[in-house]
Each structure stands twice: as C-alpha cells, then as structure tokens.
C-alpha cells in the first residue's frame, strides 16, 4: 500500500472541508472493505485518506418523511434492525445476503453505493425501494435517486468533493410485497451471478405498482422500467411475469467473467425476474 496521510475529521463540516481542499487527492474511508483492497493493489493511490468513523450521526437511522439511513450504517445493522425490517424488508433481505457476517459488520451502506461494483446486492434493492441518496459537498447538498446514481463500473455521479451522507427510503406503498433473489450457483459467500429485486403491489387482482431492478447484469445495477410498465395493470400471473422478464433482460449487456458468459447471465436474469415476481406476489403481506 502506498503511503498516505490519514485524517480524521470530527464533524461533517470538517470532513467536507477536507474533501473540498484535497478533492482528487483524497479518498474517504468508511468500513474500508473496498477501499483498502484497492489501495493494497495500487488501484487507487490517494495522498489523503479521510476517516469518517467519528461522524457518529452518520451511523444513525431516523424516521422523518421516510427512513433516513446514515451513510455509515453497517450492513449488519440494517440486516438486524427491526425498523428496517418494517420499513423496507427488501433492503434487509439484500443486506443479509451480502458476503459474510464479518464483512457485513465492517461494510457500510454509503461505502457500498459509492463503491458501485455492478455485482453488489444493495443497489438493486435500493432502486426497487425507490430510495434516493443525499449527497453533500461544501458547495451544495443534492438528492439523487438510486436509479440515476450509478454511471458505470465503479462509477457514480459523485464528484471528488462529495460525500454520501444519507440513504433515504420513502415509505413503501401500502400493500406492496417484495423479494430479493441472489443467484449463487457456486458458494454461499460469493458475489451474485445475477440478482433481482422486486417490489409489487397488487389490488383487485391487478398489479398496481411494480419495481424491478437487477444486479450483476452489466456495468451498473439497472432498473427494468420497461418491465415495470408492462406489468402495470396486468394480472400477476406466470405468462405476464415471463413477458416482464423478457422485457427486463432483452437489452442487457452482462459482462463476461468467471461467473459466466453474457448469454448465460441474461438467461439466468430472466429466470430470476420471474421468480422474484412470483416470490413477491405470493409472499405473506407484511
């Protein structure tokens, strides 16, 4: 690991100041599970590493016009929190399937989304929850919807001086049910080969609201807007789910890697879109 100076601000203002000052030369560190790995392999070589662990209020969750999750909240906290289970069981479920307990105790939600690996579990879940992210810098504070946040492999809309401070999950529509499926054909601790998050509300035998998002199917997690539209107003049955899966996966361009070929992943994505929709529409009502 290349040498760097470690800085540990006491407040958000101070952190934003440091980021504003060092910008490109600095990286913030939360759990470190992604950043340290990158630094060890010289994939990033920041001159300054800004530790966020003293920003205690970013480790907290508050209910205020939705669930506001501090960016430093660990995945383990999210997975075990009754509040999250009530608000957004989909997010809890996705967190539960990330890596292993030890990694979930270290890894933060803010770190995950800023990391923006396309195979992460939390981004599709957040997209299907209609979550948005509060992003702050010395210049401004802005809100970015989850589905607009990710721009490429390990790339996001974040500017070098910006910090994710909050992940906001709005109150979920009444009557909606959810499912998160992570396809793990090898071992249980693996990254997803593909993953699907679904949130569906059904009323009078018709889908009134659907959210579908997929992970590990391309350069970023993607929201399947076409499939969502296609389902709206339709009966929640197998044929319609298959059509939705077709719409959700037809244009995907999954990456070729050791977990499979693009073609295989596209097929697996389609299978799991159907399954996620089925699971969501047959799950017990919360």
């Amino acid at each position: 690991m290349k040498p760097f100076s470690y800085l540990e601000p006491d407040s958000l203002d101070e952190a934003l100041d440091l980021l504003g000052r060092h910008g490109d030369d600095a990286k913030v560190i939360a759990g470190g599970t992604a950043l340290v790995n990158f630094m060890k392999n010289d994939l990033v070589e920041p001159r300054f590493v800004i530790g966020l662990r003293r920003l205690k209020h970013l480790q907290a969750m508050t209910e205020d016009n939705g669930l506001r999750i501090g960016a430093l909240t660990t995945l383990r906290t999210l997975e075990t929190s009754p509040t999250v289970a009530g608000y957004a069981p989909l997010l809890a479920q996705a967190c539960r399937l990330v890596a292993t307990v030890r990694i979930r105790m270290m890894a933060t939600l803010g770190g995950a989304i800023a990391y923006a690996d396309p195979a992460l579990d939390t981004p599709p879940a957040l997209m299907a929850c209609d979550a948005s992210f509060t992003v702050q810098s010395r210049r401004e504070a802005r809100t970015v919807p989850a589905y607009q946040f990710f721009t490429g492999i390990l790339e996001t809309v974040l500017a070098p001086d910006e910090l994710v401070t909050e992940i906001v999950v709005p109150r979920q529509p009444t009557g909606c049910r959810t499912a998160y499926i992570k396809f793990l054909p090898a071992t249980h601790d693996d990254y997803a080969t593909v993953s699907v998050a679904a949130r569906v509300a059904v009323a009078d035998g018709k889908v009134v609201d659907a959210r579908i998002a997929l992970g590990a199917v391309g350069a970023t997690a993607v929201r399947a807007a076409a499939a969502e539209e296609l389902l709206a107003g339709k009966e929640p049955n197998a044929a319609n789910f298959r059509d939705a899966a077709q719409a959700a996966t037809a244009d995907l361009e999954p990456l070729k890697d050791i977990r499979g070929s693009p073609d295989y992943k596209r097929k697996m994505a389609a299978v799991h879109v159907v399954r996620a929709l089925q699971a969501a529409t047959t799950a017990p009502h919360p």
């Binding site: 470690y6 599970t33 340290v36 990694i103 105790m105 270290m106």
Partner: peptide, 22 residues
Amino acid sequence: VGVCGACSVLLDGKPVSSCLTL
C-alpha cells in the same frame, strides 16, 4: 481480501478482517 477469515480479530468486540482494517 476479506474472504478467508484467518486474520479475524475483535475490534471493540466486533469481528473484523484485520487484513482490510487500517
């Protein structure tokens, strides 16, 4: 890289991979 757990120690009682911890 955080996978094997050989480096597990407890930091304030919480397990961490010391290979990924500053």
